[in-house]
Amino acid sequence: MQISFTLNGRPTTVDVEPATLVAELLREQLNLTGTHIGCDTSQCGACVVHLNGLPVKSCTLLAPGLDGASLLTIEGLQGAPGSNRMHPMQEAFREHHGLQCGFCTPGMLMTAVALATEKPDLTEADVRHALEGNICRCTGYQNIVVSVMAGAAAMNAAKGE
């Protein structure tokens, strides 16, 4: 079946099998391999994308559900328009060593950006609670938590400018 949606700001039309998962569509058909698949029980969060601005696990979503929607993946995450800089959350992860092997990182970033957008004044406890659906095996989460708080602060500062 044919579906049309906005992918990282661009109109996109694709033919999909009805049983295709969004994560598979992105990775196999659209060659956007930044969205990762780390489990088969919707636990790990490596596949988080934004659907109409909200974070979702793309391994649990059927592709036909995208029709008419707006999808943002890690490849579309970027800094302010007109700049080629990274998104403040990406910068914060680099600055605070919030990643090691990089596999969970795209999902962490997408969750973090959604969290910081929804709740500008984050506490450490907020961040730890919100990351409950994203598993990282490398960092012990400490620098991820620090990164998310710094990234959220930078997003707020950018908004105020």
């Binding site: 490849e75 990274m86 680099r94 600055e95 990643l99 596999f103």
Partner: peptide, 21 residues
């Protein structure tokens, strides 16, 4: 220094085996 490898991982441009076709 900040890590050299981070750019590709932060932007979804790592090259893991499952990404290869």
């Amino acid at each position: 220094p900040k890590r050299k490898e981070d750019q590709r991982f932060l932007t979804g441009r790592g090259n893991y085996v499952s990404d290869i076709k």
